[in-house]
Design a protein around this nucleic acid. Sequence first.
DNA 1: CAATTTACATTCACGCATGTATGCTTTTAT
DNA 2: ATAAAAGCATACATGCGTGAATGTAAATTG
Lengths: 220, 220
Amino acid sequence: MPDNRTMVKRTREEAQATRESLLAAALQVFRERGVAHTRLVDVAERAGVTRGAIYWHFRDKAELFQAVCEHGTLPVEALLAEASQSIQRDPLATVRQLALMALIQLAQHADTQAMFDVIFHKCEFTEELAPVVAKNDADRDACLSRVQQLFDQAVASGQLPPDTDTLLATHGLHAYMVGLMHEWVLSPQSYDLAACAGPLLDTYLSGLATRPPVCRPRTI
Amino acid sequence: MPDNRTMVKRTREEAQATRESLLAAALQVFRERGVAHTRLVDVAERAGVTRGAIYWHFRDKAELFQAVCEHGTLPVEALLAEASQSIQRDPLATVRQLALMALIQLAQHADTQAMFDVIFHKCEFTEELAPVVAKNDADRDACLSRVQQLFDQAVASGQLPPDTDTLLATHGLHAYMVGLMHEWVLSPQSYDLAACAGPLLDTYLSGLATRPPVCRPRTI
DNA sequence: CAATTTACATTCACGCATGTATGCTTTTAT
DNA sequence: ATAAAAGCATACATGCGTGAATGTAAATTG
């Protein structure tokens, strides 16, 4: 068992392990104290090192936070690519599958729950976190435009009514997803997300089919 | 025109005006810099006073934030009481009216937008803001249980299917509302919330009527 | 096997935001 | 009118977190 105080230098793999444990420790401390109130010494101690290790692997707290975000985020692009190639003929089912996988991922992985808890409730999105915000916005816009494409296809194929405002429908679904995650991480015991995600999604999608949003409310 | 530097003491009404301007200034600076990164000197300067005025009216930053929240929040109880007494025979319409008023309020008042922007994106909910969190939770639970009562009435009166899981339906609607506000304040120009709030709500409520959430997915 | 680089630990100085103490002037109460 | 208190401004002390500088020993490299 190596002595961390005297035996300083580690091999490359050990250094990578140090980096990983720093990311995990940062996620925990961020969740407990909030990002802005987190002191780097707490992160270091949680990971069993000193601040020197943090300043070696990351420039400052902002870069550490950015690394935490990029490390733990669910692979949106992969999900999008996979879902869009799988069921080409049923765009609504594709959307459903996409959203369902995200919710299931959240329900089943503690790290994902911690990530979204930090992002939603333990973080201030200000100027110094601009790169993270920019990446989030880019991912969100890509996801939203892809979903809107799917909704357009659903309209074309008759799965959704012809007067559907697909932009509004997309914003609505996105809001629904964000709200479900936002609130569920606050009290995961309030209901079984993994079991209820499907029915919850079906309720909204059924609403899209029977009474789709149109900006000019139609006269019955 | 009184000199603020030499003439220190003000009348009671002037002191109240100072307090109000401090709340307004705090809301602005919170939105710009984030709550945790806000320096009290910035709030004071924005209000045209010094930190002494803040420490006279409030104990510390946490109490100032709490006052900002209680000052600007939409009167939930009043809305609930009003809506529950108005349309006793149409519980679904009552829920719709309740949610619609909240969205319209957000869409039309800049202060409300600032409040929710701070609450959702410029604030870390940690231990020191415990009283605010507690009050938020209490308000939310009260609102949720009231909405669930209305959904129960809707089931009893046949407006919703008999196998509706009203708890899930309530969580779903709440998530929808939270998500709509959470995302719309990020880019209010993305769509006209005041005009689209009704159709967006109707989509979800229609989904509730045609395919309500049930935790054990029913076998068609 | 030397030279260099890696991967941290340790130390230090600095700024900065906070909280408190105190002073000062005008209301307000009596 | 006089005492008391309200409503701030100013000054001060304090701690705390950061970032940079430096130290150091093991691990690579050639």
